[in-house]
Amino acid sequence: MQITSINVGLPQTIAYRGKELTTGIYKTPVSSSLFVSKIQIEGDGQADLTVHGGVDKAICVYPEEHYAYWETLRGYKLDVATFGENLTIRGLQEHEVRIGDTFAIDEVIVQVSQPRQPCHKLAKRMDWPEATLHVQDTGYTGYYFRVLQEGRISPQSELRLLARDEAGVTVAYANQIKYHDKNNIEGVKRVLGVEALSTSWKQSFRKRLAELEV
């Protein structure tokens, strides 16, 4: 496991197809150490706090390995942090990481809380209307860390696994149940059984379970 880039950026207003759009998806790699609080990395911010940020989504993570796929598909090289991620990481893809796994990044301790749900701003960032759906279909979503212990990190920081979640629900499995195997009651229950699952995903899956059990 290796952090290949730490990326931050404050919300900005851009023009997209004749309309103004305020978004925090544009992130820039940093070379210095930054303080990580319970809600974000120093110098970072989100435009719509109703769906982004907060304690369950303090740090957005995206696997570096996926970039080659998207670049081949789109036919051009993507900028660093195209997916709006705070951490670009090698060696920790969705099928390899479990919701609830905890990691140390130097003095900072983080925990996987949920898969990342791409929104329309990614599609606009890439100028590709189908981007959001394609990310969901491939499962190349990335995921979020909540921060259990604050501290400082730098691009030279090491990422170390501290503990694996006993429920064994990977980010990839949660994505499968969320987007593809929607009527799998046992699958929904299994995802809900992860204590570390974010509040918003718990609410969503409880609602689905209630509908399935009618």
Results as ranks from 00 to 15, higher is better:
E130S: 14
A104T: 05
E85C: 02
V108K: 05
C119M: 08
M126G: 03
L73G: 03
Q93A: 10
I99E: 02
Q111D: 04
E107K: 07
Y67A: 11
V112E: 03
D79Q: 13
P115D: 13
E94P: 03
V135N: 09
C60V: 01
G100K: 01
Y69R: 05
Y76Q: 07
G75C: 11
K124F: 05
V110D: 05
W128D: 12
Y62H: 09
A81F: 02
W70P: 00
Q114H: 12
L133G: 02
C119D: 13
T102G: 03
A131E: 10
P63Q: 06
S113K: 06
R74N: 01
E94Q: 02
E107Y: 07
H95P: 01
A81G: 00
A123W: 04
R74V: 10
S113Y: 10
V135C: 14
T132R: 13
D79F: 13
V80M: 09
G84C: 04
Q114V: 15
D79H: 12
Y69M: 08
A68P: 00
Q114Y: 09
D106V: 10
G75Q: 04
L87N: 00
R125C: 05
E130T: 13
E64K: 09
E107M: 07
V112L: 11
T102V: 11
H95D: 14
L133E: 08
A123V: 08
L133N: 06
I109A: 04
H120S: 15
M126A: 07
H66D: 04
E107P: 15
A81V: 04
L92Q: 05
A123I: 05
A131L: 13
E64A: 15
A131F: 14
T102M: 10
T102C: 10
H66V: 07
P118C: 14
T132F: 06
I105Q: 08
K124E: 13
R90F: 10
C119K: 11
L92M: 13
E107L: 11
E71D: 04
Y62Q: 04
R125Y: 06
Q111K: 12
P129E: 07
V108D: 03
E96Y: 04
Q117L: 13
I99P: 01
T88G: 00
K121D: 12
G100C: 03
H95C: 07
H120P: 00
D101R: 05
E85L: 03
S113H: 08
S113G: 12
E130N: 11
E64H: 05
A123D: 07
W70N: 02
E130Q: 15
I59W: 03
A123H: 01
E130W: 12
L78Q: 02
E64W: 02
P118R: 11
E64R: 08
L78R: 04
I105V: 15
Q136W: 10
V110Q: 04
Q136T: 01
E71Y: 08
P115N: 10
T132D: 03
Q117D: 12
D101P: 01
Y62C: 06
V61M: 00
A104L: 13
Y69A: 09
T132I: 09
L122V: 13
T82W: 13
K124R: 15
T132V: 14
I109W: 03
